[in-house]
Computed example of a mutant assay.
Amino acid sequence: MGRQRAALGATLGFALVGCSAPADAVPMPDETQSAALAAQLALASDQQSVCYGWRLDGDQRSSAGSNLGPGIDVQQDPGRCPRWVQLTVSVSYATTGDGSADIAVTSTAGLPGGSNALAGLSRFGVDEAAFVADPVWALVKGASSLPLLAVETGTVDPALAPPDPAPTDAPAAMPDAGGDLWRDRAGYLVGAAILLAVAAAFNGLGRWRRRRDARAG
């Protein structure tokens, strides 16, 4: 059964490649996937001042890492990570094809952990069934959801995008477009003005002729 989901690339901005392992072995993230996950967590950690990490165990193999990098446990550096949240999962497959997963979210005080955090992950589709069906997908989705769970506790701010740089020069003033009357009816108004001018000219010519004839008489 294929355990990689192509939809992860659209969700997190990077693609998961297939894991080469025996059919009954628990798949683990490869180096590319681990590095991408660490970078994803680093973006949130830099803006929230909270460290996020993961650990996946199965078949005497494991994958661990954090926003500090692949292979670096979130609890190894208290100086840089005084506040942290970690997703820990152990997956096993039985010879009958069935499987099970033990999931835990641990953290420092005030951050998501325990049953509330597991319920939050379940809302994102990350539960025991997901880890059994696709451990790598569930691990990446679950670890990437930790910053969202932290925001829900109200103890950290959402990760914000960097603001757009302010313009260095004031934009040039737009030329006066004039009134709507001139824009919409300019042709008619110009034509009317010409007709009025012609009429005035004929009127003036007629008055001049009448005065001339009066003098001649």
Rank of each mutant, 00 (worst) to 15 (best):
T11S: 08
T11W: 00
L12A: 09
L12M: 07
G13Y: 06
F14Y: 05
L16K: 02
L16N: 05
V17Y: 08
G18S: 11
G18A: 13
C19R: 14
C19K: 08
S20V: 11
A21G: 02
P22K: 00
P22I: 00
P22H: 06
A25P: 03
A25Y: 05
V26N: 07
V26A: 04
V26L: 03
P27M: 02
M28D: 15
M28F: 08
M28P: 06
P29Y: 04
D30C: 13
D30E: 10
S34R: 06
S34V: 13
S34L: 10
A35C: 02
A36M: 06
A36Q: 15
A38E: 02
A38C: 11
A39N: 13
Q40S: 15
Q40W: 09
A42V: 02
A42H: 02
A42W: 05
A42L: 14
L43V: 14
L43M: 11
A44T: 08
A44R: 06
A44Y: 05
S45P: 10
S45A: 15
Q47K: 12
Q47P: 07
S49P: 00
C51V: 07
C51N: 11
C51Y: 08
Y52K: 01
Y52L: 05
W54H: 03
W54R: 04
L56D: 10
G58L: 04
G58D: 07
G58S: 12
D59W: 06
D59Q: 12
D59R: 00
Q60Y: 15
R61C: 14
R61V: 04
S62E: 06
S62M: 13
S62G: 07
S63F: 01
A64E: 12
A64Q: 13
G65P: 04
S66H: 08
S66M: 10
N67E: 14
N67Y: 12
N67R: 05
L68V: 06
L68C: 11
G69K: 09
P70M: 09
P70H: 06
I72M: 13
I72G: 00
I72V: 15
D73G: 09
D73K: 00
V74K: 03
V74Y: 02
V74Q: 02
Q75G: 07
Q76D: 15
P78G: 05
G79Y: 14
G79S: 12
R80A: 12
R80T: 10
R80I: 04
C81H: 10
C81D: 03
C81N: 05
C81V: 02
P82D: 04
